[in-house]
Design a protein around this nucleic acid. Structure first.
Lengths: 316, 316
DNA sequence: ATCAGTTATGTAATTAGTTACGTAATTAAT
DNA sequence: ATTAATTACGTAACTAATTACATAACTGAT
């Protein structure tokens, strides 16, 4: 069974489960061997109760990291066999306050030897290893608390995918992509306006020949994102970042960020000082992206677009 | 939730389970995120099938370390969704030979990215730890293969219990214990013989005053084991190790070994060269113990006891 | 050629947890 | 003083594995 060698660390979940099952199995036999009637799965609950005073269901659940129904079930089993007594909370009558019964206390006394032997056996085993499983588990728990495995994988995916994205300058071949990608998102959220048609149908005349610039994001050589830097005739702003559109197919590939970065680089290259943009606050992810790129909200400028309700600017 | 800190390593089973559950949960979401219809629990089965050629249910089970019903179920689920094709074995028609279908192969292709991202995420996480979880798991598996946790705990118990055993010299207070412990085991397996009554009823005259010695094993000050060194009138042997009896209550406390060792020490102290004993081969644990103490089988000496069918000796 | 034992597999029941949901009690906000 | 929201906890249904058991097919020794 060298499955783990072959499959590698992505099988760590299976591997953990298998080891824990293996240990659980031995634990079952151990409880039989030491002649208690305690159920091994009661252990965490029983242990915390034998340490301290009475506790409520949810308090126990939190302490041992189980769900509360699990604790609820275990307590009712233990209660049936009279290891614990349950009592309604005096102040808060929703609470089920649980403590060990006389029988439970006696069992707790009796189980000390077993705890000691198990503890020693595990310490002994650990002493024969080069890598400390216990500490390693602690580290994993800590790191996963900070950032879940899910988040980590998503980050890796973004990294991989964005490495497949190339940002290139516009050439006429991309005219239809430039149009379609923009039409797609605009008509999803708003209505196409007169100004849209002009620039989308003829970017050469309306953007490029007026000193603007268009960038295209290719994913595996397919144009899935675009954005434009439009030369502004304005005392304060040099360019407008506009016509930013990313295909839903390219979600999670960091394309917006890469396009934005490339556009700002280009603006700097063109000697710009300030870049302006207009958007709408219902486009939360877009606003978010602009913020991350460094744009700040500004007010008091007129707009040719109906759909614009927020304006932002950045000093590049 | 500092339960693990409090409970210590004896909670390692719970801790392993919790981490594996946590990872499994994220895995479920990951499969959804990457848009396959594969079930995360299929992973080990799917993986081995995507590696090699067709395989049978039990072969897969063995490779991934699951039970065969588990694999059987997974395969039937995968089969229902047409990821695999099942076929009766040609030579052996009991066998269910399984391989990926076209759809399965396609899914295997498509899942490569996910594998890569997960692998990288885990490698990345591992790189941030001081203690290598993956290697630690390997070490635990190896050590548990050699000696199960159960066996290790039993060994610890023996160690602890034997530390509560004291071997002391006989005093008249122990006369009845000496008698009862021997009567108990003799009459369980055999019939009491004339020679037994003599020495058990009056050990002072029949053993001690003839230059012999009696040792008593106390467990928490209760006499639960005895044995005697009887002076022999024999050209070859100096003492006979006899009347070794340990209460069933004291099982697993190493009492026989401790008594035997003490008896041999005493024999040496008394200047003996060779110690003799008689027993019966149906008493397997006893014979075993004598072997471990260093006794070797010998032949050709007459015995006063009917129940004796084996004779052993040791040069002390 | 036959019969006992072994092997491959499937089905059913069990286990130790989970999530989903409902209800009663408490607390907070008008 | 209501009403809405939150909290505590129980019940039900589900999940991913297991063990126990049944059955059919094969193998080997008479």
């Amino acid at each position: 069974m060298n499955f783990y060698e072959k499959a590698g660390k992505k099988a760590i979940g299976s591997r953990l489960r298998q080891l824990s099952d293996r240990i659980a199995e031995d634990a079952t036999q151990l409880y039989a061997l030491y002649g208690t009637n305690l159920h091994p799965k009661w252990f965490p609950v029983f242990y915390v109760l034998s340490q301290g005073q009475e506790k409520t269901i949810t308090a126990i659940a939190e302490e041992i990291g189980h769900s509360h129904p699990s604790v609820s079930k275990i307590i009712s089993e233990m209660s049936k066999q009279q290891y614990v007594v349950e009592e309604k909370g005096k102040k808060d009558r929703r609470k089920n306050v649980v403590r060990l019964s006389a029988k439970g206390l006696e069992a707790a006394e009796k189980i000390q030897d077993q705890y000691e032997d198990v503890g020693n056996a595990i310490e002994d085993l650990s002493a024969q290893t080069n890598h400390d499983l216990w500490k390693a588990l602690g580290e994993w728990e800590f790191l996963l608390d900070q950032k879940s495995l899910l988040q980590r994988v998503v980050a890796q995916r973004k990294l991989r995918e964005s490495s497949l994205v190339r940002i290139v300058d516009y050439i006429p071949e991309y005219r239809s992509a430039f149009r379609e990608l923009n039409v797609e998102w605009i008509s999803t959220y708003f209505k196409m306006e007169e100004a849209d048609y002009k620039s989308l149908d003829n970017p050469e005349d309306y953007i490029l020949n007026k000193g603007g610039h268009i960038l295209v994001a290719l994913y595996r050589d397919e144009p899935l994102g675009v954005c434009a830097l439009i030369k502004m005739n304005h005392p304060e702003f040099d360019y407008e970042l506009a016509k930013m559109a990313v295909s839903p197919k390219a979600q999670g590939k960091n394309m917006g960020w890469l396009l934005g970065q490339a556009a700002l680089d280009k603006a700097r290259e063109l000697g710009a000082q300030k870049v302006f943009l207009e958007s709408n606050t219902i486009l939360k992810p877009a606003i978010n992206l602009y913020h991350k790129l460094g744009f700040q909200k500004i007010t008091g400028y007129p707009s040719p677009y109906e759909r614009s309700n927020i304006q932002m600017a950045i000093t590049v």
